[in-house]
């Protein structure tokens, strides 16, 4: 299994490449994914195209944190409790390869791809047009993400830590 994204995703972000904003197509995927997490929106991805089988270099350091956010989101979705050890073990076992590499298993990839797709759908619906300039888009994106998380029943219940 791999990271899969909607066919339209790259086209939607294409203008930002002219702005030298992105180095990796995974950047698009990631930004959609974070919106999907913030909005707790997961839209089933039908088909889609394969992006990459693992977190690319610039994301290696944050890969476990990203998986951590998936675990938090899925705990909420499944009605499980992080304060319950067996629930936590169930979630970890459900979504991760037992190799301990932090790699997602098929179920984990399926879920994370759905969140990225949900996030992409949200962006396409909410942003006026395709993004043309990174400064404009980044500003809108980061503000919207913070707002979504702050209003989300899941994330707003967490203590805010400004970094």
């Amino acid at each position: 299994m791999s990271f899969f994204r909607s066919q339209e995703m790259d086209g939607w972000f294409s203008h930002l490449h002219k702005d030298n904003a992105f180095e990796f197509q995974f950047d698009h995927y990631y930004m959609c994914l974070m919106i999907g997490f913030a909005a707790l929106r997961d839209d089933p991805l039908q088909g889609g195209s394969e992006l990459i089988r693992h977190f690319p270099g610039p994301y290696a350091a944050a890969s476990k944190l990203i998986v951590g956010l998936l675990l938090i989101a899925e705990t909420k979705k499944l009605g499980k409790q992080l304060s319950n050890k067996r629930d936590v073990e169930f979630i970890v076992q459900q979504y991760l390869e037992s190799s301990g590499s932090g790699a997602l298993n098929d179920v984990g990839f399926d879920r994370i791809n759905n969140y990225a797709n949900g996030g992409f759908k949200y962006l396409a619906e909410e942003y006026d047009d395709k993004p043309y300039h990174a400064d404009t888009f980044f500003g809108w994106y980061t503000e919207r993400l913070r707002k979504l998380a702050a209003e989300s029943p899941l994330w707003s219940s967490q203590k805010a830590i400004m970094l």
């Binding site: 913030a38 350091a61 944190l65 980061t142 994330w155 707003s156 203590k159 805010a160 830590i161 970094l163």
Partner: peptide
């Protein structure tokens, strides 16, 4: 942006809670 803890203080809080 590539580090989710900087994207939202609630993400950072969620990870700390985890």
């Amino acid at each position: 942006i590539r580090q989710p803890q900087f994207l939202s203080p609630h993400f950072a809080g969620g990870l700390a809670m985890l």
